[in-house]
């Protein structure tokens, strides 16, 4: 399978199974479009190039095919039995230390922090038991991850600090290495908390949507005021204090700002170097939801953003955009490429009461409660369903060119829209495909612009 497309004056072909990316001239690009479906005579008659040029292009395409970098066979499908046969162990937990929030963001998947339940804080005892559960179920894995999440985790920061201290003591006993992250809306950030985060958190996610009017339309305080003026100076200070690495400013775009490249560039203009602005995932009945009819505009905006990134890089104003980051030279192992985040198997979320869920997005949906940290995983049929979910089990992924860069999409989004973790959220898929195209084009530009 080969995906061919044009962007920014590049003719690009992605060989899906090998991952090879080719940049073609117009002759080769047009010949490639007919290469598998037409005879040589038919290609001569269909295209307005000289026979000599067409023959050259055909020979080059044949050479790539022989080398295994065009129309290559799927090398992963045969490995499924080996991958599926492994005993899953837990390596990461998302600790919901706070089911409460000091903002009232309209689009919050967590129901403004409450997760459709009563507002609550995780106790130190519950958090401690969750860390014990993680260590106990992590098998031989040394690197373990804990995300402090909410709601707003800074509303329960004393417990966060105690849990970090406990984990540091336990990791020595069990030969483990904890990696911590925290996600915050920034309202409660202080210099003291900033110092603590810098000393203890490997990654920090700072929630802000971009331009002031965009952010303040969605991310309001309890009294109805905007949050931008409170959080922006704090976030700039925190990002600088971390040397502009190991953090992300993370925003959400909605139907209200389909010109979201303006928000990305605003964050870049404010000095941030690690930026993610992502599409809202919301029921179609919500006024701010992104609908099928919005996709053309979203696609144009992603392409416009890619061009802006190129021009800024020329002027040494570059920044990283989370969804355009693609590693064509390395990449993860096969099992990760085909199954993604490991939700429900190696990554679990823990609610304030100790309940276990496949990931943070499933918390609050009792159908997806798989057990608790005290008695362990009880709903094995559900975890098996997650374990066996990958790009080879999803019909929608089989012919998709982006499958090895997307790993089948978010399982929670799939369930929320299609009531099955095996049926990806189609609007999300379409945006993902456009982002992969943009990311590959950026790589092509990086490699060939100077030639």
């Amino acid at each position: 399978m080969v995906h061919r497309y044009k962007m920014n004056n590049y003719n690009i072909a992605l060989d899906i199974n090998s991952g090879a990316v080719h940049v073609l001239d117009d002759v080769a690009f047009d010949v490639l479009g007919l290469y598998k479906s037409s005879t040589r005579e038919e290609i001569f008659n269909s295209l307005a190039y000289s026979q000599n040029e067409i023959v050259e292009a055909i020979n080059e395409l044949k050479g790539l095919e022989s080398a295994g970098t065009l129309f290559s066979e799927d090398a992963y499908a045969g490995l499924l039995d080996e991958i599926n046969g492994r005993e899953p162990v837990v390596k990461a937990i998302c600790l919901h230390v706070t089911h409460d929030c000091n903002l009232t963001c309209k689009y919050c998947f967590a129901d403004e922090g409450g997760y459709k339940g009563s507002r609550s804080l995780m106790s130190f005892e519950t958090g401690k038991a969750a860390l014990d559960f993680l260590i106990r179920n992590s098998g031989g894995r040394r690197n373990l991850e804990v995300d402090f999440f909410g709601g707003e985790p800074l509303m329960n920061f004393d417990v966060v600090k105690k849990l970090v201290e406990y984990a540091r003591a336990e990791e020595k006993k069990h030969n483990k290495n904890f990696r911590f992250t925290v996600t915050t809306n920034g309202l409660l950030l202080t210099e003291e908390i900033q110092s603590y985060i810098n000393e203890n958190m490997h990654n920090v996610v700072l929630s802000i949507d971009g331009r002031k009017e965009i952010n303040d339309n969605m991310r309001k305080t309890k009294t109805g005021g905007g949050s931008y003026d409170i959080i922006m100076p704090k976030f700039k200070k925190l990002a600088d204090s971390r040397g502009q690495t190991n953090y992300y400013v993370r925003g959400t775009f909605t139907k209200g700002n389909l010109d979201f490249s303006g928000d990305v560039l605003h964050l870049a203009d404010e000095g941030f170097k690690q930026i993610s602005v992502e599409p809202v995932v919301a029921d179609a009945s919500e006024a701010y939801a992104i609908q099928v009819q919005d996709l053309d505009m979203v696609f144009k905006e992603y392409e416009a953003l890619a061009l802006k990134i190129i021009s800024r890089k020329k002027n040494n104003q570059d920044f990283n955009f989370f969804h355009f980051m693609l590693d064509l030279e390395g990449g993860p192992c096969v099992s990760k490429r085909i199954a993604g985040c490991g939700a429900g198997t190696e990554y679990l979320a823990v609610a304030p009461n100790g309940g276990l869920y496949p990931c943070h997005q499933f918390v609050g949906n009792e159908e997806f409660k798989i057990g608790d940290i005290y008695s362990g995983i009880k709903n094995h049929s559900l975890t098996e369903e997650f374990e066996k979910c990958n790009v080879y089990t999803k019909e929608a992924c089989k012919e998709c060119f982006a499958k090895f860069y997307c790993s089948g999409g978010c399982l929670s989004n799939a369930y929320n829209f299609n009531k099955s973790i095996q049926k990806p959220y189609e609007i999300g898929c379409q945006m993902q495909r456009k982002r992969v195209e943009c990311a590959i084009m950026l790589k092509a530009h990086e490699a060939f612009a100077s030639l």
């Binding site: 199974n17 090998s18 991952g19 090879a20 990316v21 080719h22 940049v23 073609l24 001239d25 002759v27 080769a28 040029e53 050259e56 292009a57 080059e60 395409l61 050479g63 790539l64 295994g68 970098t69 290559s72 066979e73 090398a75 992963y76 390596k91 990461a92 894995r141 040394r142 690197n143 991850e145 990696r179 980051m325 693609l326 590693d327 064509l328 030279e329 390395g330 990449g331 993860p332 192992c333 096969v334 990760k336 490429r337 993604g340 985040c341 490991g342 190696e346 990554y347 090895f404 860069y405 997307c406 790993s407 992969v436 990311a439 590959i440 790589k443 092509a444 490699a447 060939f448 030639l451």
Partner: peptide, 23 residues
């Protein structure tokens, strides 16, 4: 080659980390 340039030299079919893929 005259008509085609290949971008990457390490490929999928020639194949403890952080939780995520495109890592």
């Amino acid at each position: 080659m005259k008509h085609i340039k290949t971008l990457n030299t390490k490929l999928l079919n020639n194949t403890e980390c952080q939780t995520s893929v495109a890592q």
